[in-house]
Nucleic acid binder design. Sequence first.
DNA 1: AGTTTATTAGAACAAATGTTCATATCGCAA
DNA 2: TTGCGATATGAACATTTGTTCTAATAAACT
Lengths: 207, 207
Amino acid sequence: MIQADTLTDRQRAVLDFVQNQVEVTGMAPTVREIQHHFGLRSPNSVQQYLVALQEKGLIRPNHRRARGNLPIERAASGWTEIPLLGAIPAGLAVSSEQFSMPERMRVDLARFRVQDPGTTFALKVTGDSMMGAHIMDGDIVIIARREPKVGDIVAALIDGESTLKRLDRDVDGNPVLKAENPRYPTLVPAEELTIQGVMVGLVRTTK
Amino acid sequence: MIQADTLTDRQRAVLDFVQNQVEVTGMAPTVREIQHHFGLRSPNSVQQYLVALQEKGLIRPNHRRARGNLPIERAASGWTEIPLLGAIPAGLAVSSEQFSMPERMRVDLARFRVQDPGTTFALKVTGDSMMGAHIMDGDIVIIARREPKVGDIVAALIDGESTLKRLDRDVDGNPVLKAENPRYPTLVPAEELTIQGVMVGLVRTTK
DNA sequence: AGTTTATTAGAACAAATGTTCATATCGCAA
DNA sequence: TTGCGATATGAACATTTGTTCTAATAAACT
């Protein structure tokens, strides 16, 4: 298996675009669709990314087939059911499966780029602490368990209660949790900072 | 709605083949691939099945797109596909079916209380005019064609362009369209106020 | 008998599409 | 410097592919 990190930024961007188009439209993009998306003026500019990605085993080898540049690991299509948590129980760390969670919700795997349904869950937002990030009371956020990056909105366990915060760093480079609402304080990291997952999507229904 | 059982045996066979090919290869077959599979000697023999299936709403309308004859996944227990419009074409009033719609998205019927998939569509939001209602650039809003009430967020056709606004009334009780952003003006109703639908939901994916 | 519908065929066209060749720039390493 | 890899352009070519027009046959229906 060739690592993805041997890709250049540009190659990665092309691959992302191809994967995304497959997810959204159900078709792999043509060379010229990729070309226009990146504002390139020659189909050959794209061609070289495609051969590179083919050589690295990331998209299918293709012989003159229209829309044949399909990613090898095709994103799972269809939908799955993930647990919908009203409030994450205290102490939940790794597995949420053993809790009796009656409610589940269906999500489109492709749209939220769900890799593994088992590590993804939904969380109903209460309160207005993330209003500044345009997340409202009653919204449902989709959370994936993966390593958070600075700037990500994360579900964090603080004092046995799960809240949504933006992961940031202070002047010393230490991680802090910021509420996106001036009325709420920025939390300095307790000795233990349990981040349960990263927000990857949001679903809102109007009453 | 036309039922699938109004299909002829041959039309059903073509649809099955198309669906199977999508599942197996990840690509919709070309006209000539279908042709050869059935041992036909003219691409036009296939073409007529395809138009029939398109008219019956079983495969996507397609305009000269290679491998564009994708089946519309229907009735997968609670799911449907609705058109995802980047920008609503001017003059769109009742039927959107005859427009070439490249993108579709899956939605959970129950979650968004979709009565009739045919009267529901998705609209990709551009701009920040609805930031005050916590609708961001890039969000996808689900729009249902129904009578709007005061306070509803509606997709309105203004000067041939579709925008998202909140339906309100001025002091005289006349309908006005309010942008939820102080930097945008409130629109007095032109003589014709075409409201295309009411927002019933929102889907956001984080990059 | 006449009409419609489903099916298939053949030819041809226009557009879409993958591919190749030659060339150029930039940054970086030998 | 030289060379190399990544990136980009432009032109051209050969297929592939969707589409249209005309026509034929057979079965079902009026």
